[in-house]
Simulated scan of single mutants.
Amino acid sequence: MSKIVAELIGTFTLVLFGCGAAVLGGDHVGQLGIALAFGFAIVAMAYGIGPISGCHVNPAVSLAVFVAGRMSAKDMALYWIAQFVGALAAAAVLACIAGGTQHGLGQNGWGPGYGGGYPLQAALVFEVVMTALFVIVILGSTGPGAAPGFAGLAIGITLAVIHIVGIQVTGVSVNPARSFGPAVLVQGQALAQLWLFFVAPAVGAVLGALPFRFKVLQAA
């Protein structure tokens, strides 16, 4: 139960801080500030709940950990539930603070009218590749032989860099729960495009985890 509660709180924090920076402070902090908000949120939670649950706070990460052989299917399913509930709760709190959803909740998307107007193909490639790289950093920095105490920094910095690169492409998901919370409340195009932010991170997670599963990537 401690792990489930930790994952709920961690995902809630990530979505509230990251999407909150975009919705409440985006005009002032810009793309870099939003990227750092997501990255710093992960760093904080890595050290806050990492010792309890591993701080996945992302269904794609839990899938990658499962594929790599580091958790059971049952635990993965329970983590997923906690992560989606935490993300939805954070989006609801953000909507309450922002006075509704009329200005958005930091939802992900692509195409005309969103960010840089990148097409579906670009969004798909970005989310698959970045999720794969993200889980490689996570699995590598938390696996045997990794430098103790530095995983949170490595993971947070990586997430921040991914946002710096890709906010204009998709708003950056690499996390189905992060996309789910805002999309459910905003509805419309955000909900219609939600499928990509489930499919692409899942594919990326598997691609990133397989080298660890088959020991192509392992500590010397």
Results as ranks from 00 to 15, higher is better:
3 K>G: 11
7 E>P: 10
11 T>G: 01
11 T>D: 03
11 T>S: 08
11 T>Q: 06
14 L>T: 00
17 F>P: 04
24 L>D: 09
33 G>I: 04
33 G>T: 01
35 A>C: 01
36 L>G: 02
39 G>L: 12
44 A>E: 01
48 G>R: 01
52 I>R: 07
52 I>G: 04
53 S>N: 01
59 P>C: 07
65 V>N: 05
66 F>Q: 06
72 S>H: 00
75 D>W: 01
75 D>N: 15
78 L>A: 13
81 I>P: 09
84 F>R: 08
92 A>K: 14
97 I>F: 09
99 G>L: 10
100 G>V: 05
112 P>M: 05
115 G>R: 03
118 Y>V: 01
120 L>N: 05
122 A>K: 05
123 A>P: 01
123 A>H: 02
125 V>E: 05
130 M>I: 10
135 V>L: 00
138 I>T: 14
139 L>G: 04
142 T>F: 10
143 G>E: 03
148 P>R: 15
162 I>D: 11
167 I>W: 13
167 I>E: 12
182 P>W: 14
188 G>Q: 15
188 G>H: 15
190 A>G: 00
191 L>P: 13
193 Q>R: 08
194 L>C: 13
201 P>C: 07
202 A>R: 00
204 G>K: 06
206 V>W: 02
210 L>G: 00
215 K>C: 01
216 V>M: 14
217 L>R: 08
220 A>E: 11
220 A>W: 11
